[in-house]
Simulated assay, not measured.
Amino acid sequence: MAVYFIGEEESGCCRIKIGVAKDIEKRRSNLQTGSPSELRLLGWIHTEAAFELERRLHQQFSAAHVRGEWFAIEPADILPILRRATSEGFVARNANAFQIVGYDRDAVPEYLGVWEWGDLEIDECCPFCGCLCGMAFQDASQMYHCIRCDALTDFSELSHRHNESEG
């Protein structure tokens, strides 16, 4: 089971639903049917204690309660929760994850980021599976490795993919 965070943006106000589901995308789709606003999956946490975690999060955000399981909170409020979950926490990946948007003064590429609602460092989140386990740098291969999905990358193929889609 997973505790999910689904966001609804409506006239400058952000509401986030904190719920539990086995199939998160099916749940988002069912919620979308009854909502005039676009609903977007922000992140989720896989846990055996999903209902307990959901209850604790509802209590934590009780001052911002709107209705049902909806809270007037920002995605930035849930990012620390997802980070604390480490390898069980995931963010819904930005479609342009790790697009190079510039270079710093040492010619090191700066990336758009894997999560569009907050800054994550390159080694915090896997751009392939969204896991917040951290991308471990391997000296031998000079590449980053995700312990969750086993991806091995130096992120250059993501830049090539982006360049191909523009051209």
Rank of each mutant, 00 (worst) to 15 (best):
R83T: 02
W115P: 01
I16F: 05
A64Q: 15
Q60C: 10
R56E: 15
E110S: 03
D119V: 12
L152I: 11
L53Y: 04
H162W: 10
L42N: 08
E166R: 10
L41A: 14
I6T: 05
Q138W: 11
F137S: 09
G43V: 09
P36A: 03
R84I: 01
W117V: 04
C131A: 15
E25A: 08
F90D: 10
A92G: 07
A64T: 04
C129Q: 06
T47A: 11
D123E: 13
H58I: 03
R161I: 08
I78D: 05
K17G: 02
T153F: 08
C149P: 08
L53I: 10
P36R: 06
Q32I: 01
R93S: 01
A97F: 01
T33M: 03
F137K: 08
G34H: 13
V108T: 10
V3G: 08
R161K: 13
K22W: 03
L82Q: 02
Q60T: 14
E69Y: 01
E164S: 05
I18D: 06
Q138K: 15
F155R: 08
L53Q: 08
I78E: 04
D139V: 12
T33N: 01
K22V: 02
A136K: 15
E116V: 00
G89Y: 03
F51I: 01
E54K: 15
A92H: 14
I122A: 11
C133P: 00
I122M: 07
S29A: 07
Y144G: 13
L31G: 00
T86P: 00
G118V: 08
L132F: 09
Q142R: 08
G68N: 11
G134Y: 04
P127A: 03
D154K: 07
I24K: 04
L112K: 11
L39M: 03
S29T: 12
E166V: 02
D106I: 05
A72Y: 01
F155A: 02
E52W: 01
C129R: 06
E157I: 12
F155P: 01
I18Y: 09
L79S: 05
F137M: 07
S29R: 14
G118T: 06
A72D: 09
R56M: 11
C125I: 05
E164K: 08
S37M: 04
H58W: 12
M1F: 06
L112W: 00
Y144W: 12
T47R: 14
T47Y: 10
A76E: 15
N163Y: 00
H46P: 00
R55H: 10
M1A: 12
L31A: 00
N94G: 00
L132R: 01
A140Q: 15
D77C: 09
D104Y: 12
P75C: 07
K22M: 02
V108H: 10
H162E: 08
A95E: 13
E121G: 14
R27Q: 12
E121F: 03
